[in-house]
């Protein structure tokens, strides 16, 4: 049942965003694994559309926050305003009190504002004037970063990149997909006609189910080998953290579920590995070797 629903979600999203099956599947995997997603790409390739489509299909309340350099934490979290009628401070929640947040161009904001967002992502709650406010559940952040035009930006430091379960790139569509896109209907109109495929409750159940996908000892061995390799081979400046290892397993479970299996295979780990490690590992040698993650997979034997 869950698999049929997932297939329906993927089909719907793929109808809106053409020719991007794999990144879309990864994005869905990330949400199912309760992780936050970082999309790094040029403007105009459909980052916002993807976030919006996902939110609508999954029946989530969606809010886009455009980050700018003069933004303050309050612009995200909200403010308490004194109200004369009640003679009280009343908290006006900010955009973060939504279920799916698109943090657009997160690297434009000052580190202070960034860390407010990242803290909220980590803790699932915010503290305003001594009062702790829980964020909604489910709570997803899809942040985007523009790799070009870095002047006047604050790129997220590596330690904060770790907060994102996955980093994906969308890239240009291929020729056929692009042709369909150019000839087809306006995406905004399509989005407005879009209906939710599942309810929020169903989504929460699915997240529950992801945690129950079986992980065998053999698979944990494999993940440990990958972690050890990144730590001991001397190819990377720092190895993967235990959090990255947990993320690998969790994402592998979600991927296996989308694939319709109740257990995780090494192939699932390999499928999610590039998006999980690419922003966490830095090669010691600055060779412009694009497929180094492919090499990483080749270098670790499956036990």
């Amino acid at each position: 049942m869950a698999q049929a629903q997932l297939a329906a979600i993927l089909a719907t999203v793929n109808d809106i965003i053409l020719g991007k099956q794999h990144p879309i599947k990864l994005a869905l995997t990330c949400l199912l694994a309760k992780g936050h997603l970082l999309i790094e790409d040029l403007p105009g390739v459909g980052k916002t559309t993807l976030a919006h489509t996902l939110a609508t299909t999954l029946g989530l309340r969606f809010q886009r926050i455009q980050f700018t350099s003069d933004m303050l934490p309050a612009d995200i979290i909200g403010v308490s305003i004194y109200e004369r009628e009640t003679a009280k401070f009343n908290f006006h929640p900010g955009p973060i009190f939504n279920q799916l947040i698109l943090a657009d161009e997160v690297n434009r904001a000052s580190p202070r504002t960034q860390s407010a967002l990242l803290e909220a992502m980590e803790e699932q709650q915010v503290t305003v004037e001594g009062q702790t406010q829980s964020l909604s559940s489910p709570f997803f952040v899809i942040a985007t970063q523009n790799p070009a035009n870095q002047i006047g930006t604050f790129p997220l430091p590596e330690s904060q990149l770790d907060r994102f379960l996955m980093r994906i790139e969308l890239g240009y569509p291929d020729a056929r997909a692009e042709r369909d896109l150019l000839l087809g209907q306006d995406r905004r109109e399509l989005l407005q006609q879009l209906q939710a495929v599942i309810t929020v409750d169903e989504l929460l159940q699915m997240q529950q189910a992801v945690a129950e996908v079986h992980i065998s000892h053999a698979l944990v061995d494999y993940v440990q080998r990958i972690l050890n390799h990144t730590r001991e081979s001397g190819l990377y400046q720092t190895g993967l953290s235990p959090r990255a290892g947990l993320g690998l397993l969790r994402a592998g479970q979600a991927w296996a579920m989308i694939e319709g299996r109740d257990h995780v295979l090494p192939e699932d780990i390999q499928a999610v590995l590039p998006s999980i490690v690419s922003h966490r590992l830095q090669r010691r040698e600055q060779e412009t070797n694009q497929d180094w993650i492919e090499q990483l997979i080749h270098q670790v034997a499956i036990p």
Binding site: L265, E267, Q299, A301, I302
Partner: peptide, 9 residues
């Protein structure tokens, strides 16, 4: 079978 190749692949 390559060492890194999963059973399904």
């Amino acid at each position: 079978k390559a060492a890194h190749e999963g059973p399904q692949d």
